[in-house]
Each structure stands twice: as structure tokens, then as C-alpha cells.
Design a protein around this nucleic acid. Sequence first.
DNA 1: ATCCCGGTGA
DNA 2: TCACCTGGAT
Length: 232
Amino acid sequence: METRKETVKNIYKALKRHFGLTHWWPGDTPFEIALGAILTQNTAWANVEKALDNVKAKDWLSPEALTEAASEEVEEALRPSGYFRQKTERVRLFCSHLLTHYQGSMKKLGERPLKELREELLSLKGIGPETADDILLYACHKKIFVVDAYTKRIFSRCGLVSEKIAYHPLQALIEKNFAGTVKDYQEFHGLIVWTAKDFCRKTPACRGCPLALPEQRGQAFPCRRSAIPWDG
DNA sequence: ATCCCGGTGA
DNA sequence: TCACCTGGAT
């Protein structure tokens, strides 16, 4: 029987074989990546892109510009991403922190050690575990596994964990059982996002799923379950 | 009508 | 634990 470590590795290998390189996260600079991480909270990425396009069109893609602009105008730009008042506040709090402590430099922010930086990000209002880890992994290139709703869905449907597992236990389990570089961590999360969109949707669309067991291949349902029972 | 790569406040 | 926050796509 497969060990948990082998299962995690096999999931990564199967997804990589199917999709190739994802080059996740979308965004050209560390600051844009951090911005996207905040804007995508409970929001479809297509709507985040519209907000980011608005910000770029205004030439506001910097912590200075976003803090100096009138908040009503920033709200207007962020509107397509939803929760636009909340997100304007969150974005500006992050920008202020960046300016106050790092001269607005994501590079300087990224020089802090992983654990301290994670606690620091979590202390900011509007940055929870997933957003913090997005920023750490993709903007600061720290080796940390990003857990999201898709990760829980896929790993639970593969039988590795309960679907109700909390953020940190799942993160710890994956990190303990996955040996990879920062690039591997980045790709793994990207592959999970793509898999969730194409196959592992809320209502499963398993036909052609790279994670389907051989005997289930070609079936529309069910996806594989209970490959390895999890004892908590 | 329901869903999006969540986080906060209570 | 849960209501709430928001607009846009399907």
C-alpha cells in the first residue's frame, strides 16, 4: 500500500504530467502579486483582473500611488473585484505597512525570515493565512505551501484528509510529505487551481481527471476516494 | 440563483 | 461557529 508521502508525490507528478508548467501566480511584479492575493479573496480571478487593469490604467501599481490616491477613487478602481470598500482598506493598510517599514520595497520585505514575516503579515487586518502564504510563496519566494478551498477539496477527495480539515493541519501534512523546491511549491498550488477548475469542481467533473485511479478512468463520477484512510 | 483561489467580528 | 461583506459570470 502506498505511503502518504508517495501519494502526495504521485498527485504532484500526475498533475504536472497532465498540465505541464502553470507558471503560477499571475502577475508581473511582487507588488502586483501581493495586490492580487488580497483582491482575490472569495472572488473569481476574472474580476480581480479587471480591478488590476483599472489600477494599471491609473498608473497606481505602487504602494505610494495607492496610498496617495483618494480612497473613493481607489474604491472605484477596485469595484469589479467585489467587497470594494473592504478591499480598498486592506490594500491600503498593506501599502502603508510596506512604506513605513520597508520603504515600499517588496524586496526588503522578503528579506525577513519566513516565520517572522508570516506572523507580521497575519497581524495586518485583512491578511489571513491563505493571503499571507500567497504573498510569502509567490511574491517573496519563501518555501511555504498555500492551502485553499481547492486544496482541501482535492486532497480530501483523494482520501488523504477529512474535507473539514483546518488550514494549518493540512499545510503541515503536505509540507511534511512533500520534498520540493520553492518552484515546486509554486507549481503544485498552480496545478491544484487548474485541476479544481477543470475537474475537481464543487460538483465533480471527473471525466479525464489526471487524479482518477486507473479503474475509474473514463467515469464521469465518482472521483477516487479513500485511497489512504486518514486517522486524524 | 449560485458561485468565485477569504477574513473579520462576535 | 456563523453572518456579513461585494460585483460579475454562468
